[in-house]
Design a protein around this nucleic acid. Structure first.
Length: 334
DNA sequence: ATGGTTTTTACTGCGTC
DNA sequence: GACGCGGTAAAAACCAT
């Protein structure tokens, strides 16, 4: 299972995401309650009826390790995540409990040395249980991160970063009171930005299991508590993606970059939506290079309104002109 | 909660192909 | 006449306080 799972390519993931199917395990069942189709929810490890929502079987899948490990150090890191090979554990991952009454199986009280032994065992039992729930938490979160990263076409290293961020959040006890999904989404969002391949908050909306507000808040909290120190997204970082989605030339991308750096000098970019700026730059660059792009096309791929593009692109052109005038006056005279 | 800023929505008229 | 574009007013969203 783990093999086929991790080997799946990004495009396959995307294809299945798009067509709305999520039965990665390939098993098809009918619901005993209503006869509807039962699908597998990999993130939670539950098999759920599509119609009535009955959980047919929990923890039925996903026993394998979540990720491939490429280097020995990664293997170390990942082995800490959980105990996926449940068959190898005495309890198959179920929690244990040791009774508190100091009696043996037939009800006799234990000797003092036995009592001491049992109390030591209880302590360890508790400790294991604690790390166990941590692991479960981590495992679910990382499953979510993996799923979302695939859907958004984010590369492996971003997932790594996201998992590191999540782990830190877990270590610093930032999770209580917050949903795992929200935090997982926030971690991935932060990781994507850190890696210089940002995705806008809006792009997570259809992917995440929680609402935008929740993970946006989680992200702010995360950024503050962990002191991630992530600078505001640079609009230029959105350019390559938008340009390629619109199938535009490298030349145009270069032009757009220039426009953005011009407006950055004037400071006219602060407080503006970075995707809006990128979109405006692309449109303006289209005018300059003579490529025929409509505002509507750009608006659609960048997910901003046409009005915003209009506002941005006129500002960008102004900034560029100002830049050129500056350059001229520097050469002498006005 | 509030107020200021930015973005979106919806609608308009204009010019061009 | 459809289309791309620009402008505007009002609503919504966002953010800091």
């Amino acid at each position: 299972m783990s093999g086929t799972n991790s080997v799946r390519t990004v495009s396959e993931h995307r294809a299945s995401e798009r067509s709305g199917e999520n039965e990665r395990s390939g098993r098809v069942e009918t619901c005993p309650e209503c006869g509807g189709t039962v699908t597998t929810d990999d993130g939670r490890g539950e098999r759920v009826c599509e119609q009535c929502g009955v959980v047919v079987e929990s923890d039925a899948i996903d026993h394998g390790p979540e990720w491939r490990a490429f280097t020995p150090s990664e293997k170390d890191e990942r082995s800490r995540v959980g105990s996926p090979t449940t068959k190898l554990l005495h309890d198959e991952g179920l929690s244990t409990s040791i009774g508190w009454a100091d009696k043996d199986a037939s009800g006799r009280t234990l000797s003092s040395s036995q009592r001491e032994k049992m109390s030591r065992l209880r302590v360890w039992d508790e400790r294991f249980r604690a790390t166990d729930s941590r692991d479960r938490n981590l495992k679910q979160a990382l499953g979510e991160i993996d799923r979302m990263a695939s859907a958004l076409g984010l590369p492996e290293n971003v997932r790594e970063t996201a998992s590191v961020i999540y782990r830190r959040a877990l270590d610093e006890d930032l999770l209580p009171g917050r949903s795992i999904e929200g935090m997982a989404t926030a971690s991935l969002y932060a990781a994507a930005r850190q890696a210089g391949t940002p995705r806008s908050l809006d792009e997570f909306e259809p992917i995440s299991r929680v609402r935008r507000q929740k993970y946006a808040r989680a992200y702010r909290y995360l950024a503050r508590q962990l002191e991630l120190g992530i600078a505001p997204a640079d609009p230029a970082e959105y350019l390559p993606r938008f340009v390629s989605e619109l199938e535009l030339s490298d030349d145009l991308e270069r032009q757009a970059r220039e426009l953005l750096s011009a407006v950055k000098e004037t400071g006219g970019h602060s407080g503006k939506n970075p995707t809006g700026l990128a979109a405006g730059a692309i449109y303006a660059a289209g005018l300059l290079t003579g490529d025929r792009i409509t505002q509507q096309e750009v608006a659609e791929t960048a997910d901003v309104s046409e009005v915003t593009i209009r506002d941005r692109y006129s500002e960008l052109l102004e900034a560029l002109e100002g830049d050129q005038i500056d350059a001229r006056s520097e050469r002498g005279g006005n």
